[in-house]
């Protein structure tokens, strides 16, 4: 994903938030509700883009990460780059959980509300993700 893609997703997210705000029942926190919209928008966007390019979501993400160093809006060092690469190799759900927990530091309870998954399952997902990432970092 590059900045333009992220910009598109963010704009779509906020337009949807405004459109559906009247339907927001307050059953969850506003943050969780918005985050869920953003997550769905992002996943839909990636899948649609992969479909347009006649490829899979995984293959496309791997290609994107290889081009990451050329991205103007990515100024990460070698270890940051390597972590991004490791993440793209994870299954979709583990990617999501890992990014939310490690980068965003969202609490499991909030994450459970956003993703509609139990806290136990989320912890397991994160644990698996960390193991795979650490293995990748050791061998590469």
């Amino acid at each position: 994903m590059n900045h333009d893609d992220a910009d598109d997703v963010l704009q779509n997210t906020f337009v949807k938030v405004f459109q559906y705000l009247k339907d927001f029942k307050g059953e969850s926190k506003l943050f969780s509700w918005m985050y869920r919209i953003a997550t769905n928008e992002a996943i839909t966007f990636i899948n649609q883009k992969a479909k347009r390019n006649g490829t899979t979501s995984e293959a496309m993400q791997s290609k994107i990460v290889d081009n990451l160093k050329a991205d103007t809006y990515f100024d990460g060092n070698e270890i940051q780059f390597k972590l991004q690469k490791a993440i793209t190799l994870l299954p979709e759900k583990q990617q999501l959980v890992f990014k939310m927990r490690y980068y965003e530091e969202i609490k499991y309870e909030a994450m459970s509300e956003i993703l509609g998954t139990s806290v136990g399952a989320l912890k397991a997902s994160y644990h698996h993700a960390v193991k795979k990432i650490e293995d990748f970092m050791k061998t590469n």
Binding site: F74, D75, N77, F81, M137, K138
Partner: peptide, 17 residues
């Protein structure tokens, strides 16, 4: 990198801006 532990490393940020 042989005993890489994510929790032992300083926080790695995403690198995007």
């Amino acid at each position: 990198m042989n005993d890489f532990k994510l929790d032992n490393e300083p926080k790695i940020t995403s690198g995007f801006k």
